[in-house]
């Protein structure tokens, strides 16, 4: 079957179903949603979710309860909506977001190779291509719902995502130039002695900000601005369709955190954790990977408690006039200084 041996097949199942596939990404979403609610509640001087789940006053199972509630709800399609596109888009959003996870290597495989569902030397390029499909989904969903708020929100999303993809691609260019590879695993290996956050700090800042805009997190949640366009392009979705939109959002967060970890924070590299390392060196790598992901996630979440929302013209202005020049400067610096530090990363 598929030209795989029995052991390889089992391994593939583990990868797809457990880590880094379905179970991990769903668990990540649930934990992040819970953490976001509790953490923001603390910033707001509130208590946050309280009663659901074990451990008193933690509300640990609140996201699961919310998800179950959403699944139970009736799916309502507006009578004037384009039914096919309207029903398709949430599924497509969740599918595409989940698809990116298949190309991200999470650790070194003990038997050689990488712990990744589908290995390709062009993994970074594939993820970028998937990223460019997001505005299409938002515009499609916003248009299909046939609601004025949805349409305005979708158009805002299209503007914002198109403007902020360019700095992302440009700041990735610095790394691709340095490592001469689109292979995420290769990029991690290049950082075995020094991380790219030190060699390319401007690129890191640019990509962090641009990724927050890409994820529509505050202060860049303009397409979803409650006070202006109610909820932007997913306004009309209810029940399980809304749940899919939410899941896609947090899958995207998972992909983004993984991507930044790999590109700038050295992926799974880190000193061996004694206890985990004894069981398997891979576990130690996964530990470091998840820790770095957590740091990025907390930074992204924190924006919601600290900033008011920007206006669309301010956002586009800062995208075109600040982030893109900064990313280009980073490329120029990379080109100018590469000869000194290229040996450091083994090129």
């Amino acid at each position: 079957m598929l030209g795989l041996s029995f052991v390889e097949l089992i391994e593939l199942f583990i990868k797809v179903l457990i880590f880094p596939g379905t179970l991990f990404s769903l668990l990540f979403s649930i934990i992040v949603i819970w953490f976001e609610r509790k953490f923001l509640a603390r910033m707001h001087l509130r208590i946050g979710p309280l009663h659901v789940g074990p451990f008193n006053r933690l509300g640990l199972f609140q996201p699961i309860a919310d998800f179950l509630k959403l699944v139970q709800k009736e799916i309502i399609t507006p009578s004037r909506a384009n039914k096919f596109l309207y029903d398709l888009m949430p599924m497509l959003a969740a599918f595409l977001s989940a698809l990116s996870i298949a190309f991200i290597p999470y650790a070194l495989d003990p038997s050689g190779g990488y712990w990744v569902i589908f290995y390709t030397p062009l993994s970074l390029l594939v993820i970028l291509v998937i990223l460019t499909a997001k505005p299409f989904i938002m515009v499609g969903a916003g248009w299909a719902a046939n609601n004025k708020y949805c349409t305005i929100g979708a158009l805002r999303a299209a503007f914002q995502l198109l403007a902020y993809e360019i700095p992302i691609v440009l700041s990735l260019a610095g790394i691709v130039i340095a490592t001469r590879s689109f292979d995420l695993a290769r990029i991690v290996e290049a950082q075995s002695s020094v991380w790219f956050i030190i060699l390319q700090p401007i690129g890191f800042i640019v990509i962090l900000i641009a990724m927050m805009a890409e994820l529509l997190r505050r202060p860049f949640d303009i397409p979803l601005a409650e006070q202006e366009v109610v909820f932007g392009w997913p306004t009309e979705y209810t029940g399980v369709q809304f749940a899919l939109v939410m899941v896609a959002e947090y899958f995207d967060l998972c992909v983004t955190a993984s991507l930044i970890t790999i590109l700038f924070l050295g992926g799974w590299s880190g000193p061996a954790i004694p206890l985990l390392h004894d069981i398997s060196p891979m576990l130690s790598g996964i530990f470091w990977f998840l820790l770095k992901m957590a740091v990025i996630t907390v930074i992204v979440i924190m924006g919601r408690g600290v900033f008011p929302r920007l206006r669309i013209d301010q956002l586009l202005e800062s995208g075109w006039t600040v982030l893109i020049p900064l990313a280009i400067i980073q490329i120029l610096i990379t080109l100018a200084t590469a000869q000194w530090w290229l040996p450091l990363i083994g090129v």
Partner: peptide, 16 residues
């Protein structure tokens, strides 16, 4: 004022 620009922290602190 806080919530008019999506600044939830301001809303919660002052209401508190």
């Amino acid at each position: 004022v806080g919530i008019s620009a999506g600044f939830e922290t301001m809303l919660m602190w002052t209401i508190n």
